[in-house]
Design a protein around this nucleic acid. Structure first.
Lengths: 239, 239
DNA sequence: GACGAAACTGAACAGCGTCAAGATATCCGA
DNA sequence: TCGGATATCTTGACGCTGTTCAGTTTCGTC
């Protein structure tokens, strides 16, 4: 049902305008696609959404755009190159959601941290395969500088909030408690997202459906994380 | 360099004893392997250890034992069948480590929970690919009853400790706080393990090496998890 | 309008998982 | 001790995959 159009071209081919690709999925009309790079990324995201990370193939991405299986190599080198591009976009979206959570959290840094957690898991549930891809380094070019930058940006959003909570300034290097705070918060939300996406919580959900269960459970889980506050409140709890 | 022996058999073939396979890696000498099933599992674990989950192929497993690529099908059906077997053994080992941590923790249930976390991450670091395989349901037969049982056993170990901490009996159904406790603890250790294995913490490690960093960081991270204790100690901390 | 560069094709290759049919060993009853 | 039933493994093939390479088509620019 996907093979809608045979390669024959019934008089199309305008040849003047640059109305090249109007979204992935439509077979090609011209020899030069016009924006194959973007179209491939779109097709990849589409396939990931339908079939998951394991189900993605480079050839199918090319097929959906109506392009030869060798075409992607010119833009991405190999399959890892294309997937890395998708992962970069994913990290950018993730960072956006974290910052959004940061705003939602208001003045209290601990509330901001929790809302970042909601943003993190929200992203994972909204784009499951993309999220899993982002942390499946076996299929990515981990040395890609853009990927590194995008990943670090997400990390930095979390880190700055931890710095506020622990009373560490924005400049001093992360000390052990600060590091533990970042790693702990990250681990918790990441593990929650990962386990949820793999269906490990499925047996526990009630009648309201999986997503309702997860969204109701998440705040309770996040509440278990207690990053010790720095000495803004003299005489506060010490340990 | 693996094709050490051509199919010709220079007078071997004892024919009486059952000294079949002495570990994976040695090419086959007889038409019937003797214990192909176990040998395949061994080879699979070997390959997983060397090349990770993405690098595993069924044909290579067969090749290492000196058996045709179609042979595994008779014992496991398909590749997911073999990997499921490996995952089952992984869950059993994981459960063992959790119970071991439980013993290490002594009388205090919170200490037992922490030690289970150490066991969980310890298993992941000891068998990285096996651990990742166990939670990569795209490559497993998730409906396999033995896999389900093995997974539930690990979960149950964690759950019983949470029941103790929250003061819930061993029989009553998990209430919301208990559920949050299980999910939170699981999420945290799982996320930590997963992120560590994917190398996401690599930039943060000091000079002592990755493993030393992780093992020193883990207790600090686990300390951030505070599952509210049930009312065993009247007047105790409320939150 | 010609020409260099960029984009894309077509055919090929080795490797993959899996299937059907045939070969071989083991088991078990006569 | 033999012989057939049965479990085990092989052979050969299929369609799929990612990738390479030589060739074709188009674009951009003189």
């Amino acid at each position: 049902m996907d093979r809608s159009d045979p390669p024959s071209d019934p008089g199309g081919r305008t040849g003047s305008g640059r109305q090249s690709g109007s979204g992935p999925g439509r077979p090609r009309e011209r020899y030069h696609h016009g924006d194959l790079r973007a179209a491939l990324v779109g097709a990849a995201e589409e396939i990931l959404g339908e079939k998951g990370v394991e189900g993605f193939t480079l050839r199918e991405a090319a097929r959906r755009i109506g392009v030869s299986p060798a075409a992607p190599a010119h833009h991405f080198g190999d399959v890892a190159g294309l997937l890395t591009e998708v992962a970069i976009l994913g990290f950018e979206e993730l960072t956006r959601r974290l910052e959004e959570g940061n705003r939602r959290g208001g003045a209290d840094p601990e509330a901001r941290l929790r809302e970042q957690g909601v943003g993190y898991v929200g992203f994972a549930l909204a784009y499951p395969a993309r999220f899993q891809l982002m942390f499946r380094n076996g299929r990515l070019r981990t040395e890609d500088p853009r990927l590194k930058t995008a990943g670090r940006a997400a990390f930095a959003t979390l880190e700055s909030t931890i710095r506020e909570i622990t009373g560490l300034g924005p400049d001093r290097p992360l000390d052990a408690p600060g590091l533990a705070g970042v790693l702990g918060a990250w681990s918790m939300v990441h593990g929650f997202a990962q386990l949820a996406l793999e269906g490990e919580f499925d047996g526990l959900a009630g009648e309201d459906g999986r997503d309702a269960f997860l969204r109701s459970m998440l705040p309770e889980v996040l509440a278990l994380l207690s990053v010790p506050a720095g000495r803004r409140d003299p005489g506060g709890k010490g340990g």
